[in-house]
């Protein structure tokens, strides 16, 4: 464990807790894409299948439970909680995210490190996580504005990915044989997707005007 990865995990945990807190407190999910949240739930479900079979550490297991619990709770709130569901913007959140699931599954069947059930699903979860934010970014552009909590959510998610890249650089130089091309490439693609959001987020912060 290094400071970059710990900071990255904490930032990631805060991003999902900020979103869950927003939805739970103000009973609204305005501006949030349920499709992105469903993709994240699938990412965690397919990545943490080994949660009971391979124990890494208390921290690792605890964080997996936090991510699984929070992502499924957010989907539950947005789909089944009456008050919250009413604020869901169905007309604008129209990204065909099942195509993302299908293409990531096909890609994982083609490109993986080992052809085993767990490894292919783990690789699938990496590909899917890289594109999971797309429905949210599309919804953001459609609604042309963003309330600050959703902005913070996306900002923290981007921060977690940036810190993970620093973690891989650190591990590459400190641990022999630490080479995971698939993880690195998917992580880089995912971080680049946030780049233009960061640009506009920074502009709105610098000019101290509403992000739109």
């Amino acid at each position: 464990m290094n400071i970059f990865r710990l900071a990255g995990d904490m930032t990631h945990m805060f991003s999902v807790l900020v979103l869950l807190l927003k939805i739970h407190t103000i009973k609204s999910c305005a501006g949030v894409s349920v499709k992105t949240q469903e993709l994240y739930a699938i990412v965690f479900a397919t990545r943490y299948l080994d949660i009971f079979t391979s124990f890494v550490s208390i921290y690792n297991t605890f964080m997996k439970l936090v991510f699984l619990g929070s992502s499924f709770s957010i989907v539950w709130y947005m789909r089944y909680h009456k008050a919250v569901h009413r604020t869901y913007d169905r007309e604008q959140d129209t990204f065909r995210h099942w195509f993302l699931v299908l293409s990531c599954l096909l890609l994982a069947l083609l490109i993986h490190e080992k052809f085993t059930f767990l490894e292919v699903l783990w690789t699938f979860s990496l590909y899917l996580e890289a594109v999971a934010i797309l429905p949210q970014l599309v919804l953001l552009q459609r609604t042309r504005n963003i309330d600050n909590l959703t902005g913070q959510y996306i900002f923290l998610l981007g921060g977690y990915r940036g810190l993970y890249i620093l973690n891989w650089i650190y591990r590459y130089f400190t641990e022999p044989h630490f080479v995971h091309w698939i993880t690195w490439i998917t992580g880089l693609v995912q971080t680049l997707l946030y780049a233009d959001f960061f640009y506009y987020y920074f502009l709105s912060w610098k000019n101290n005007k509403k992000l739109n």
Partner: peptide, 10 residues
């Protein structure tokens, strides 16, 4: 000893 591909990251 953990194999290098061990999934120790989240």
């Amino acid at each position: 000893s953990k194999d290098p591909s061990a999934k120790d990251e989240l």
